[in-house]
Simulated scan of single mutants.
Amino acid sequence: MRIRVDEIPDLGRFLHLHWDQSQLSQFIPPDDPFEINLPHPVNVDLELNRFPDHIRIQGTLQGELQVNCHRCLTPVRLSLNEPIDLFLFSEEKAPQEDEIELEAEDLDYSYFDGEVIDIDLLIAEQIFLALPFKVLCSENCRGLCPGCGVNLNEEPCRCKKSKETPFSKLEEIKARLPG
């Protein structure tokens, strides 16, 4: 969804959207190994207010995400209840290339062409920013066995246990030494 700045009334514009998997999929590369699913549409409430030098977007994202545990690949549901408070400035006010250091408050600012706001892009960005760095089904997740691939939370390893260790050869040499 795109909104032209000149379509935002002086008193602001309120949007209530239901954002589903098909909309999110537009922003995920097809070969991305990290699957993000929306089991139910996400509720998006946004208020857009136009000011002389910027647009302010406030609201919330509420719903649920389903992603895979990074250790065992089991699906995990995460609650999504994210506040949104963004300031959009025209690209002509964007920092120059040589100005690369960002302050914490700079993350609330974004830039657009000054005429059209891509609401879907803003929603996708907020969903991606809400994801934790590492998703775990539990703190005690044992993950997958690197040898046989079984989920160690559900069943024991099927690998044939070898008594060979990195120090096995040293133990053989030690055993042959006079004692």
Rank of each mutant, 00 (worst) to 15 (best):
P9D: 11
V42Q: 02
P75H: 04
H70I: 07
L131T: 05
F14E: 14
T165E: 15
I117V: 15
V150D: 08
L88N: 06
L46D: 01
K134S: 11
A130N: 11
L80A: 14
T74M: 04
D106C: 00
G63F: 02
E103C: 00
F14P: 00
P95N: 15
L80Q: 10
L17H: 12
E172D: 09
L102W: 01
F34Q: 14
P52I: 12
C148F: 06
P166S: 09
I117C: 05
G143V: 13
F133C: 05
K163V: 08
P52A: 06
C145T: 06
K169P: 03
P178R: 09
P83G: 09
R56S: 13
P52F: 07
R2G: 03
L11C: 13
S22R: 06
L17A: 09
Y111C: 01
E115C: 05
I117R: 01
G12W: 13
D108V: 00
G114A: 06
I173Y: 09
P52G: 05
L131S: 09
D32I: 03
F89M: 07
T74H: 08
P41F: 10
D85R: 00
K160Y: 10
T165N: 14
I123C: 02
R4E: 09
N43A: 12
N140I: 02
L65G: 07
A175N: 14
R71I: 01
F112I: 02
L177H: 13
F34D: 13
F14T: 11
Q58S: 14
R50T: 14
L17D: 06
E92L: 10
D10K: 15
G179K: 15
A124E: 14
P75T: 04
H54P: 01
I8G: 10
L61F: 13
C69P: 09
D98F: 05
L15S: 08
K163S: 11
L144K: 04
V150E: 03
S168E: 10
L11K: 11
G59H: 03
L131R: 03
E99L: 10
D113P: 03
N68M: 08
N49M: 09
I8P: 11
F27W: 14
E47D: 08
F27S: 12
R4A: 07
R50D: 13
K169M: 00
H40R: 12
I100N: 12
L129Q: 15
N43Q: 10
G149P: 12
P132W: 08
E7L: 08
P29L: 08
R71H: 11
G59S: 02
T165I: 09
I36R: 02
L15Y: 11
F133A: 10
P166K: 06
L46P: 01
I55C: 03
L177V: 07
V44R: 00
F167G: 04
L121G: 05
L78F: 03
A175Q: 12
N37S: 10
D53S: 13
H18Y: 07
A104R: 10
E105T: 10
D31C: 02
